[in-house]
């Protein structure tokens, strides 16, 4: 596949080097730039005058035409939409972390009759795709008067199979003696969960929280179907609506895409170590 530099016999080398360092770096940088190119493209477009945009081949340098941002910002109730997203995502995280810690503790630490059966139920939940749930949950929400509310965006995602598994796994990995300290009653065990357990599984909680938060922030079809008024709709649905209404205003659209995506990117860059750790630990469990 590749010509090795120098003449040293391969078995002499101790370090594992899959490719020549320079070639490898050049290829790696090219790959990285390819993945970043769409970001550059949307920011450039968002800062261009209309006359710069409709040109071929396109100009790839920004023109600092910030009026697009003002126009896009004025075209929809963005602060409300952002607020809705933060509220829905935040409440979903709180609920999902809570249910995950409680159930994860029960499955990971306690031994009780019916554990396998209940666990099988949780497993079965994974088999149901979200798309399948759209219709019946819509009818249920309609019956329960939950359509077009925050509730229908929060409650269904307030329990996470992934969260229960991960927390359970962390608890199962703790030394048995920790929770064997004394014969405790139910309340005592709850206190123990709160004071000893929760701090020990904090990494898992963070991973679950990030996962659920991003999942909620990025979800589209669920809120799009379940809600109809901007008073409760999240920002991504607002963005799709904006796209439907202003589909020809590419500079304004690009500005809206940029300012709605930046919060997620900032969150990711600030916490990227945890994101990557989360994914790594997923792979680690595969061994």
């Amino acid at each position: 596949m590749h010509v090795r530099p120098g003449g040293a016999p391969s078995h002499v080398r101790r370090r594992r080097r899959p490719a020549g360092p320079v070639v490898r770096r050049v290829v790696a940088v090219a790959v990285g730039l390819a993945f970043l190119a769409p970001f550059w493209w949307v920011v450039t477009t968002s800062l261009a005058r209309t006359s710069d945009v409709y040109r071929f081949p396109p100009s790839l340098l920004p023109h600092w035409h910030v009026a697009n941002y003002a126009r896009a910002w004025a075209a929809a109730p963005w602060p409300r939409l952002f607020g809705n997203t933060v509220l829905v995502a935040g409440a979903t995280v709180v609920l999902a972390v809570l249910t995950s810690v409680l159930a994860g503790f029960a499955f990971g630490v306690l031994r009780f009759r019916g554990r396998t059966a209940l666990f099988t139920v949780v497993l079965a939940v994974m088999m149901v795709p979200q798309t399948v749930l759209l219709i019946p949950d819509y009818v249920i929400a309609q019956t329960a008067d939950l359509l077009d509310t925050y509730w229908i965006q929060i409650l269904p995602w307030g329990a996470s199979v992934f969260g229960i598994f991960l927390v359970r796994q962390f608890f199962a990995g703790l030394p048995t003696e920790l929770f064997d300290a004394a014969e405790l009653d139910g309340a005592g065990r709850l206190r123990m969960l709160w004071s000893i357990g929760v701090p020990l599984v904090r990494p898992a909680i963070l991973i679950v929280a990030l996962n659920v938060f991003l999942g909620s922030w990025n979800s589209f079809v669920w809120p799009f179907v379940m809600t109809s008024s901007p008073a409760v709709q999240p920002v991504e649905v607002g963005l799709a609506t904006f796209y439907g209404a202003q589909g020809t205003d590419w500079t304004g659209l690009s500005a809206a895409v940029t300012f709605t995506t930046v919060p997620v990117l900032v969150l990711f860059l600030a916490l990227q170590r945890h994101f990557l750790t989360g994914a790594y630990s997923t792979a680690g469990g595969l061994k």
């Binding site: 249910t99 209940l118 307030g158 329990a159 065990r189």
Partner: peptide, 28 residues
């Protein structure tokens, strides 16, 4: 684990299971 945890364990798993029941299992 020796302690009898049945009621507690069911209580702890209940919130999650309830959500699954209402929004996933019954709807299916």
């Amino acid at each position: 684990r020796r302690a009898r945890n049945g009621p507690l364990a069911v209580g702890l798993t209940l919130p999650a299971l309830l959500i699954f029941a209402v929004f996933t299992i019954l709807p299916t």
